[in-house]
Every structure is written in structure tokens, then in C-alpha cells.
Amino acid sequence: MSEPVARIRRALGTWDAVVLLALVAVAVVGALTIEGVASPRFWRFVVLEAIPIALIALPMTLIVITGEIDLSVASVLGLTCSVMGQLWVSGVTSLPVLILLSLLLGGALGAVNGLFITGFGLPSLAVTIGTLALYRGLAYVVLGDRAVANYPTTWTTSAIQPLPGTTIPWMILVVAALAVVFAVVLHAMPIGRGLYAMGNNAEAARFAGVDVRLTKFWLFVASGAMSALAGVFWTLRFASARADNGSGLELAVVAAVLLGGVSIFGGRGALLGVLAAVALLGVLRNALQLAYVPANTLTVITGSLLIASVVGPNVAGMLRERLRRRRTTAPTVSPSS
């Protein structure tokens, strides 16, 4: 009886591998069939585009595993860009100070989300849709239609400086280091065990001494701070702070997290799959652009992938659930008073 279950479990355990394989396949097929995909320049752009998505996807993975979601991330990014631009215009000329203030702002915006969600027990979907609009609106209040673009070129070039001997931007090392931190927290620390527990069954987690509300609160703070970091990178990469920076980026992040095998219902998923999915979506989009696939078709393809990303792991999950039901419904009903 446990043999098919074990087999499905093993298959689920390798969802990371499926995404990684798809990434390699798309890269190889792209390089062989599409002019330019094999070039170092191509990979430079893929990485530049993937950096902000990856930065935000790290905390988003943990949040979705606990059964919540943060849709305000792109608006936090935009508001950070606006405030950073306004501070620069007002005479704050130290980059470390600007970065520090941005991270503090992002953390505070995340704390507002966290407070509404854990303090008042509101659903994160509703709260962060609200702050998605609110924070973007505030970004326009701060900067209006202006673009702040007169940052020192040393700043803007340093942000996208390649690693010596390659075309890959050095920021990828920052992303890698942060990815290691998040992976260790999720997969090798007591906190991570609690995240999976509360994502599957918050009540049982509470009975085991997991502080569900406090943990979630800090996750939203982390999400805000990481979105702010992505905002700083965004500003410097494009040498431009505008209120509409990163509009719609939350969907790219959520798509990558779900395609990476994280269950939208919480409790399942791993960071490796999510990072592979960020890369897969980036390579696919850029390769298709190079192949002159029309923008409309591109949208259809990414949309279909998003659907597939939700359906794929969930079909496996449903099979698992059905097996579990079949096993448990029959004999465990106990007579009560």
C-alpha cells in the first residue's frame, strides 16, 4: 500500500530536478536554434533581468510555504525607487546611506503588511493587494511623473560591473550569498521546520510551540527589505528612479515561485526549484525575444507556463491526496459519545 505513495513522493521530491532539466533543455535548444543565445551578451541580459526577480523570490518562497502571499513586492520596489530618488535630489549623496535608508523603508513597508496580516488576522492576499495599490500610489505622490536620472556614473556602472573575465554581473554573487542564507534558514534551521509545519497545519504547529504569527510577521519584513534591495538595484541598473519602476514584477516572482514547485496552498516546495524556475523563465523569455517571437505570443507562452506551473505540481499533489484519502477514510472513524 505504501509503495505507490513512496513512488509519488520520490517523484515529487525531484520536481526541482524537472525544472533544472527544463532549464538546461531550453538553454541547449535555444543555443542551437536561435542566433545569439549562445553569445555571452545574451547571458549577461538574462542575469541582469533575473537579479531583482531572484532577490524577491527568496523571501516569497518562504512566505508561500507558510500558506501566505505578498503581492505588494513590486510596489515596495517602486516606492523605494521614488524615495531613494527624492532623497538623492534633496542632497543625500552617500550611496551606503541611501541603501541603508531604502532597506529600512522596505522593512517598514513589509512590517505594515505583517501587522495587518498577523495582528488583525486578515488574509495576506487581500492585505497585499491593498498595499500593492497603496504603495504604488505613494510612489507617485513622492515623485510624480518625474524621473531622477542624474546619479553618478560610477554608481550606475558599478552596479552592473561584470565579474573579471566574464560578462556576468558581479551582483549575482550577492544574490548567490543571499540564496545560501535563505536556503539554510528554510532547509537546515529550526525556523524552516516550523515554516513547513505551519504551512501544512497551523493549528498543529501552534500546539508544537511554533510562534506562527511572529514568524510570519518577520517574513513580511524580510520580503519588504528584499524588495527594497531589488529597487536599489533597479534604480542603478537603469540609472533611473521612476514611480512606475518594476510595475507588474510581482506576477513574474509568483510565477517563478509556483513553477519552482512551491504549493500555493503552502507546506511544500524548495528553494532550489524556485531559483531554477527564475532562470528558466528568464532564458525562455529572452531567447524567444531574440527569435523575433511577437510580444503577444510571448505573453501567451508565459501565461501558459504559469498555468502549467500551478497545474503540474498540484496534479501530483491531488494524486497524493487521493491516495491518502483512500487510505484514511475507511477505518479511522471512531465512535464518540
Binding site: R193, G194, Y196, A197, N200, N201, E203, A204, A205, F207, A208, G209, V210, G267, R268, R324
Partner: peptide, 18 residues
């Protein structure tokens, strides 16, 4: 089933959770 265990997690993870 609701309070004592996280049914989807392994025996090991459940045993070590507290």
C-alpha cells in the same frame, strides 16, 4: 489529526518538531 500531528509531514519531522 488536527492538533497533535502535521499529517503531511514525515514521522521524523513530526517527532522532532517541538
Amino acid at each position: 489529526r488536527q492538533q497533535g500531528l502535521v499529517m503531511e509531514l514525515s514521522v521524523e519531522r513530526n517527532t522532532n518538531l517541538p
